[in-house]
């Protein structure tokens, strides 16, 4: 047993100290608890999200991963009965401080949802909406260039270049999701949150989105919630496993999927639950 109890420098275990890696923490959650009325949905979660990395949140249904994700850009504020305690800091600043404007926060921490939800407007208008309401551009040509750049970075420009004024909802599911990503990128956020972005898409569209995530991570910090462990294994560098509202284990993706520390994690990823 002595061999296995040696602390491996690459292994990270939770409960005691924080991360030992040298990567910077873009978002840091400390002792976060979330209550929906009486229901304790997130229990004392402490987690770091590193810069320019993809962090995957996995876990069975109802484990709280989506709830936690929505805390990161204060989308839970829209739910009346929701109460959040603890601190979540973005670059060191607590985002739940009273002086923080949640509307402005969401320009820094963008979100892509499970079901693609483009506005029922033209493709151009979809992407231009964000920069327009935040006054990010000062002329029509600047706005156009922002829209085209965002569409290109989302890998959609070639497919829609000649029909920018067609309705956003006339696109296929995968294209709609990329449009939503382009829309999120257009306001130049620092973090992109993705809530099961591929669950409504076919495998080819999924692969395109995963490729996109690979490219985007060089410029953005990405947090992705996914039901598919294979997807988490493919796209992320760090994986956090949630169960019944608690963070069970967080570590490098390779370590989690080859040799997880916690048996609950192992049980989930090998399909031994239930």
């Amino acid at each position: 047993m002595s061999l296995s109890s040696k602390k491996d420098a690459q292994r990270v275990s939770l409960g005691d100290s924080l991360l030992v890696e040298t990567a910077c923490a873009k978002l840091a959650a400390r002792n976060v608890n979330v209550f929906y009325g009486e229901k304790h949905a997130i229990k004392d979660v402490t987690l770091d999200i590193n810069c320019n990395e993809v962090t995957a949140l996995i876990g069975p249904s109802g484990c709280g991963k989506s709830t936690f994700l929505r805390c990161l850009n204060r989308m839970n504020d829209t739910i009346d009965t929701c109460r959040v305690t603890g601190t979540i800091t973005l670059d060191g600043e607590n985002i739940y401080a009273s002086k923080v404007d949640s509307v402005y926060l969401r320009t820094r921490v963008g979100m892509v949802f499970q079901k693609p939800n483009p506005f029922p407007k033209s493709i151009f208008e979809n992407v231009a909406y964000g920069p327009r309401i935040h006054g990010l551009t000062s002329s029509r040509s600047e706005l156009e260039s922002v829209v085209l750049t965002s569409l290109e970075r989302a890998g959609l420009l070639e497919e829609v270049r000649d029909r920018l004024h067609a309705s956003g909802i006339s696109l296929s599911g995968g294209q709609q999701q990329r449009l939503c990503i382009a829309r999120a990128i257009a306001v130049s956020p620092e973090v992109i949150l993705m809530d099961e972005p591929c669950s409504a898409l076919d495998p080819i569209a999924t692969a395109k989105i995963e490729e996109l995530i690979d490219e985007l991570q060089h410029n953005f910090t990405i947090v992705i919630v996914t039901h598919s462990m294979q997807q988490a294994a493919r796209v992320s560098q760090r994986t956090a496993f949630f169960h019944l509202g608690e963070l069970v284990e967080c570590g490098g993706t390779e370590q989690i999927f080859t040799n997880p520390v916690n048996r609950l994690t192992q049980g989930y990823i090998t399909g031994r639950f239930g």
Partner: peptide, 9 residues
């Protein structure tokens, strides 16, 4: 089966 962790090993 796309095995992981202990199954993979």
């Amino acid at each position: 089966r796309q095995p992981v962790a202990i199954d993979l090993r």
